[in-house]
Design a protein around this nucleic acid. Structure first.
Lengths: 234, 234
DNA sequence: AAGCGCTTGTGAAGTGGTGCACAAATCGCG
DNA sequence: CGCGATTTGTGCACCACTTCACAAGCGCTT
């Protein structure tokens, strides 16, 4: 997953069996696939069918679902609506979660305008920037506020998840500020490592890194396919 | 990783020892950290120092570098410039790779304007969209072209990596088109699974999924911390 | 009511990655 | 020139996740 690890020495509870990280990372993909199946009129789906739609192996899917005390029917499959309900519950998506977005530059602008959030359990509740020239701008019905107002707004809106879309140099101070305001989950788009307390979860998305990983495979493919083809020189 | 897997039953070569996927995924982070160290005047760095800068364990770092036939000096550390050189070589970043971007909506717009690519081994070489009303628009010195011109441009510019930033419904046909034009690596921002031949690598970035994973941990934290605190009722 | 075909749920084996812990190597200094 | 401080490179044990393979369970049909 992408990528920064967190220790979780917490005990499982009845509601939240101790899911493997790898499983948690796949549940959202299952959820997306299920919504699509539901939209196209499927009431029931087999592990094979859902696995294909989600791009994974069916045994893996079944094992993942088994952690949720899954209730598929042998010989039949899984009830789509029921499974959606269950995964949304486990992911905590029942309440639409309010998210703060810090940094309304190029990328932040796009994220603020991204329609996909609302349909998938989130809404951007507030936009912040440190640059006074950007404060006051309205994006998608939301006004950009100065970062000094962050504490106030976060408390007001009950925000616990934030997205950092600032330049790298600003990311750590912004993270510190967010955490001091009670934010405990951060999605970081800035190309840098954040250091945070143990109780805060960070996920990182770095576009250049994704491309560089592809570049590796690309490079690899081109040198390898070149080799067996032609025998050069002595 | 995020996340779509590819089989690679290819043989290692002298130049490209068979790196574990996990290692490949970390090399770019090391590279970023190294550049920062270099910028701040460090000529040499210990595994401990670099590991901190990259947010990983030092043993893991050393093992990763050992796959590159690393040449650190015991008692001293690694030569920063030399290590940068080596990682860039392994990742195939020596030649600036040309990347095509398809879908100039909200997100595509932001990606096209993202300055970080150039400094990290890539340049966006062409923009495409299917919507005629967007064709001709100039973004960051590049003109948006109609997707019908894709084959031509890809051949011309020698493009092998593409970014898909279209709506979900368009992603699969666009991927098919790209692949038919010879593209062999795709970074997919559309929330859907792409099916591609074995020789094509796909990486997926889904913003909503990242948030949903955070939501899980958030949900988990809130229910767990609630439990031990107060003893309720009988 | 019994048999058949299908699909789930899961034990168990296999795979890949992590991190410890230490020997080997290098440098600087007396 | 030898010794101690330092840091790399790696064998090994461990852990998490994946995959296989199959028994158990369900519904349909006869």
């Amino acid at each position: 997953m992408s990528q920064q690890r967190n220790e979780r020495p917490l005990k499982p509870s009845a509601d939240f069996p101790d899911l493997p990280d790898a499983t948690v990372a796949r549940l959202p993909e299952y959820l997306r696939a299920l919504h699509e199946l539901s939209r196209t009129g499927n009431d029931v789906v087999s592990s094979e069918g859902l696995a294909n739609a989600a791009g994974v192996n069916s045994a893996k899917l079944r094992k993942d679902l088994s952690y949720l005390r899954s209730n598929g029917t042998r010989g039949v499959g899984y009830d789509v609506a029921q499974l959606i309900e269950k995964i949304e519950h486990v992911l905590g998506l029942n309440q639409h979660r309010a998210v703060a977005l810090v940094g309304v530059g190029n990328l932040g602008h796009a994220l603020a305008g991204y329609a996909g959030f609302g349909t998938r359990g989130f809404h951007i509740a507030a936009l912040f920037d440190a640059d006074p020239s950007r404060v006051g701008e309205e994006i998608n019905g939301l006004v950009v506020r100065h970062i000094d107002e962050l504490a106030e707004v976060v408390a007001e809106e009950g925000i616990s998840i934030a997205v950092i879309a600032t330049p790298a140099f600003a990311a750590q101070p912004v993270a510190d500020l967010l955490i001091s305001c009670g934010v405990t989950s951060i999605l970081n788009f800035a190309p840098c490592v954040l250091s945070v307390p143990d109780n805060v979860d960070v996920r990182k998305v770095d576009l250049a890194i994704e491309l560089q990983i592809l570049s590796f495979h690309e490079h690899r493919k081109s040198t390898l396919t070149a080799l067996p083809g032609t025998v050069v020189g002595s």
